[in-house]
């Protein structure tokens, strides 16, 4: 993951997904504003509030919106007006509508046939097994629940074993068990060297699944990279830790002497430490405790959740 230009060389050497200065506007409304990033194998999460431009980006990645400016390449090829690139792309759209009169098997089989797979029946059966839908595969989709429809869509998207998988809000309507199942499946697929991009406005999902996070706010890329890296890059914001130890008062006094620490707060026996430099503090805290002869029970970052990073970014 990097925002730097992709390495030179043939298409094979390029990143799987590459956006350079991509913008999209509708009339006067700018939906996506000069976004650049490149993604290799692994899972990337597009995170942002509703209306931030996540869907617009995914639509452009899947060739269903033309970028107003900039270039998009998937596996080194343009996607706009280039249907042959769909050989390597699996797409799970957000909209729920499916053909109600088809059974799940027929629908996935249709996808396999449209991809001209050599053995469409076997491919469809395999995809249906992967989403755990075998029991219901011969019932018409019209009678399916939301979560089942979601799984049918995923099965249809992976039937041709694509190298790129794009999912728009894939966890909508899934119950917790299905959610875990889908997450496992995506992790497995990413482990096989595929590039997976999904969008979500739910922080917990992105935090649990994505190795890379792309934070989109008001059509702009607000942050990109490993979640913890992003966190560390934001050094202008203090990191807060709660510390439990055998003697909070004495530890607090010792810690305040450290250059990496600029605030200590002791309320109701709870020690809260504000540090400017994450790495320096993580290095210093145990040593200070050791020299003071204090036993350190727990050092816990209070705001390492994506939620706090996110709300910080939004407020900025």
């Amino acid at each position: 993951m990097s925002t730097a230009p992709a390495p030179a060389g043939g298409p094979a050497a390029r990143a799987a997904i590459e956006l350079v200065d991509v913008s999209r506007w509708y009339g006067n409304v700018v939906a996506v504003n000069e976004i650049s990033f490149a993604l290799g194998p692994g899972i990337a999460g597009l995170l942002g509030p509703n209306g931030a431009g996540k869907s617009t980006i995914l639509h452009m990645l899947s060739g269903f919106l033309r970028p107003s400016a900039g270039t998009i390449r998937v596996l080194g090829q343009p996607v706009w007006k280039n249907p042959s690139v769909y050989r390597e792309i699996g797409l799970v759209p957000e909209r729920e509508a499916l053909y109600p009169f088809l059974t799940a098997f027929e629908f996935v089989l249709l996808g396999a046939r449209l991809h001209r797979l050599p053995d469409p029946e076997a491919a469809a059966a395999r995809a249906i097994d992967m989403v755990d839908l075998r029991d219901a595969q011969h019932r018409a989709i019209g009678g399916y629940s939301k979560g089942m429809k979601q799984r049918v869509k995923v099965a249809a998207a992976i039937v041709h074993d694509p190298r790129i998988l794009l999912l728009d809000e894939p966890f909508n309507g899934a119950d917790p068990r299905q959610r875990l199942h889908l997450m496992d499946m995506l992790r497995t697929m990413a482990g096989e060297g595929r590039t997976i991009v999904f969008s979500s406005h739910i922080l917990e999902e992105v935090e649990r699944l994505a190795e890379n996070v792309l934070v989109i706010i008001a059509g702009r890329l607000a942050a990109a990279g490993d979640f913890h890296t992003i966190r560390r890059l934001m050094t202008d914001r203090p990191h807060t830790f709660t510390v439990r130890s055998s003697d909070n008062r004495r530890l607090g006094a010792a810690l305040i002497a450290q250059p990496s620490v600029f605030g200590v707060d002791l309320t109701d026996g709870l020690l809260t430490v504000r540090a400017a430099d994450l790495a320096a503090f993580a290095f210093a805290a145990p040593r200070v405790a050791q020299t003071q002869g204090i036993r350190l029970f727990e050092v816990r970052p209070t705001d390492e959740s994506l939620e706090s990073v996110f709300s910080y970014l939004v407020r900025r």
Binding site: S62, G63, F64, P83, S84, V85, Y86, R87, I89, L91, P93, R95, A97, L98, Y99, F107, L110, G111, L114, H115, R116, A156
Partner: peptide, 9 residues
């Protein structure tokens, strides 16, 4: 649902 036909090679 047109997407399911159009996102094909």
């Amino acid at each position: 649902t047109a997407v399911y036909l159009l996102a094909k090679p």
